[in-house]
Computed example of a mutant assay.
Amino acid sequence: MAGNYFEFQFKIDPVQPASEILIAELGYLGFESFVENDDGITAYIPEEEYEDDILANVHILQSEDFKITYSQNEIERVNWNEEWEKNFTPILVDERCSVRAPFHEKLDVNFDIVIEPKMSFGTGHHATTHMMIQHILKNDWEGKSVLDMGCGTGVLAILAAMKGAKTIDAIDIDNWCYLNTLENISRNDCEHINVEEGGAELLEGREYDTILANINRNILLRDLPIYEKSLKANGDLFLSGFYEGDLPAIKKACEKAGLDFIENFERNDWVAAKFSR
């Protein structure tokens, strides 16, 4: 099982636009989650991604235009799990899909997904997950083979199953995500989803009609050749986990791999893009 998290509490004056810039810079370094506060942000990075000098190249910390101080401490994932469950509120995407916990009231929607997020990412609250749900709602999944890479809670795989996908692989390198996805597919009666723990190395010899990958810019660019090799003719690739400013680099890499840009959604400076072979 993966290790703990490091929590960084940043106090920022003035808060904007420094908070947005800081979140963008930290995202490149492997920070996985952010909470915006009245006086700054709280950021989390997995223990395995942490280095003692990790903030040395965060340029905004050296800026004279903002006063930024921070403190850090190590936290156990189990404690963060409790915070997730305590603060988790239901969401509604395009009036058609709800993502809620078991103790929330069911909404009158086409697709009702029930999850307990625990330490996994993908509740729908983050802009990237929200937009990937929008892509799934907009596109056809009937009878298709689907890969949800970096599945988090499994919410995208579950929605693809609800929309008629025939065979689905949900893969995540994090043990918490692997276990949580198993729980959530059972909770939503989607036991035909195959869940595996690991990375892109698992894709050797596999092919899919559609690939979903909501991870981060660096991993997407690194693993894009593997995704391309695993995509069937006329297949679709949906990517998120990167900022608007990263879209040109993502487009260029996809074009080099023989994939055509179709469209993208934008939300809070984040992007979710569709590419097709």
Rank of each mutant, 00 (worst) to 15 (best):
I115Q: 02
R277I: 11
K229P: 09
I91Y: 10
S33P: 02
G241S: 09
G258C: 10
S276W: 01
N37G: 10
V35C: 10
Y227C: 11
I91F: 10
K86F: 09
I226T: 15
N4P: 00
S276E: 09
E263Y: 00
Y70A: 03
F121H: 00
N87S: 08
L137W: 02
T123G: 15
A257M: 02
A200P: 04
I91H: 10
L29P: 04
C151S: 11
D13K: 10
E49R: 12
E228H: 13
V15P: 04
F6D: 04
Y44S: 01
S33V: 07
V93G: 15
G40F: 04
C190R: 14
F261M: 13
H104Q: 02
T128E: 07
L221D: 05
E228L: 14
E183S: 14
E207C: 04
N81S: 15
R96F: 06
R267C: 11
I211W: 02
R100I: 04
S240K: 03
N139F: 13
P14D: 00
A43C: 11
V109K: 09
E201A: 12
E207L: 08
D65R: 02
N216R: 10
R77Q: 04
D174L: 06
Y5T: 01
F34C: 13
D53N: 09
E47S: 10
L147M: 12
F31G: 02
L147D: 13
L92W: 07
H59F: 15
E207Y: 04
L147E: 08
A170K: 08
N214D: 12
A165N: 14
C190I: 08
S276M: 07
E244A: 12
F121V: 01
I113D: 03
L247N: 08
E7W: 10
D140K: 15
A24H: 11
E201G: 14
F121Q: 01
A101H: 07
I113Q: 01
Y178A: 11
I41T: 13
P117L: 14
H130R: 07
E207T: 09
N139I: 08
E142V: 01
G241W: 03
P225S: 02
I185M: 11
I113K: 02
D209K: 09
E197I: 07
A101L: 11
P225D: 00
N216P: 05
Q72M: 13
L231R: 04
Y50C: 06
F88I: 05
D246Q: 03
G150M: 00
L26F: 11
T129Y: 03
I226W: 14
T167H: 14
E82S: 10
T69H: 06
A2G: 04
A257L: 01
K118D: 03
M119G: 04
S120I: 05
F6K: 12
D174Q: 05
F10N: 03
D223Y: 00
C190P: 08
P90W: 13
S63P: 06
E263S: 00
N57E: 15
K229W: 12
H192D: 15
E25Y: 00
H126D: 08
